[in-house]
């Protein structure tokens, strides 16, 4: 198979786009596509400062690389969850993020959950009702809180995450299976900051296949953590991704069509305003972040229950690795 642009041997064939490209043309194509998505969904503009949430995985590091190459002012945020018991998962992923940032002279903020709050995610999960069965919900709560806090305190225009098309399509299928109206209404390439204290969240890779982000990291020589988080085994996301890939095999482009048609239907009023049952938000009296019920937010209640950290919470400015 030949590259459509130059006729050299192709490195990747994207059946969904009827497009095969060689390495050098692919490394141009991905940033072009990402820029299109950023502009199409009005995610952020040149001159604005954005924060990229990086995990050490392929998607977030590819995103940081792409937006940097496109000329956007992008800092990184790594949250050390302390998932190290015997496998050094967090230590490895943190080192990869630090190496990535240093090689490009980029600023990386690091927030260590065990150091700042007194317990790793597995420890907190074992000792709390929320995470006893599986720590993923608790992990999500902690990450959302910290990402929002750092984005707000650093006065970033947006928080960019590496969610790709497969992530979005899997979540969409999951929520459609249960007709979770609230989640369906909120699923979007851009989550606006609807009130002070909430960060604007954007997903520049929302139209990029997971296979494409992986190919970008491999072709760019970006070192990323290949191992899965040990707690992701048996996750519903992997289950729905597998189903969607089986469909994609027979119908190239099915995942993209599923997602884009959903966004279009939403724009055309498929979901009535208010169907989401959007809750009124309140300010948490302890940390100041928005919460759906009056009183302390779930994040503050979590650490209070565990008795590992005292209010008010520390670090208005996270530890930062700045380019020298």
């Amino acid at each position: 198979m030949k590259c459509r642009k130059c006729g050299a041997p192709a490195a990747i064939n994207m059946r969904q786009h009827k497009l095969a490209l060689c390495r050098s043309h692919y490394l141009e194509w991905i940033p072009e596509q990402t820029e299109r998505a950023i502009e199409h969904y009005a995610m952020f503009r040149r001159g604005e400062k954005i924060l990229v949430a990086v995990s050490g995985g392929k998607d977030s590091l590819a995103l940081w690389d792409v937006v940097h190459r496109l000329g956007y002012a992008a800092d990184g945020l790594y949250i050390d969850l302390g998932i190290d018991e015997g496998i050094s998962y967090s230590s490895k992923s943190r080192a990869l993020c630090e190496t990535f940032a240093a090689a490009r002279s980029l600023t990386l903020h690091v927030v260590s959950v065990p150091r700042e709050y007194g317990a790793t995610i597995p420890e907190a999960a074992r000792n709390s009702q929320r995470g006893r069965r599986k720590p993923c919900a608790l992990c999500g709560l902690v990450k959302r809180h910290i990402m929002n806090r750092v984005c707000r305190e650093g006065e970033y225009a947006a928080l960019a995450t590496g969610h790709n098309l497969d992530d979005e399509a899997a979540v969409l299928l999951h929520n459609a299976m249960t007709w979770s109206g609230g989640y369906l209404v909120r699923q979007s390439p851009v989550l606006s900051a609807t009130r002070p204290g909430l960060a604007r969240k954007v997903k520049p890779f929302c139209r990029t296949y997971e296979r494409e982000t992986a190919a970008y990291t491999l072709m760019s020589g970006i070192d990323y953590i290949y191992e899965e988080c040990p707690y992701s085994e048996g996750s519903s996301t992997l289950y729905y991704k597998d189903i969607l890939n089986r469909i994609e095999e027979d119908r190239p482009g099915a995942k993209l069509q599923f997602y884009l048609a959903f966004l279009q239907a939403k724009e055309q009023g498929l979901f009535a305003p208010g169907a989401s049952g959007e809750a009124e938000l309140h300010d948490c009296p302890q940390c100041g972040q928005p919460t759906s019920a009056p009183g302390k937010c779930a994040f503050c209640r979590l650490w209070e229950t565990l008795g590992t950290s005292s209010a008010p919470f520390p670090t208005p400015h996270p530890p930062t690795t700045s380019p020298s």
Binding site: I12, R23, R211, A214, A215, L218, K241, D242
Partner: peptide
Amino acid sequence: SPESVLAVRNGELVTDD
């Protein structure tokens, strides 16, 4: 699933045809 993997031969990506 061919959609869930990339193929690498001698350090280079190759297409699945």
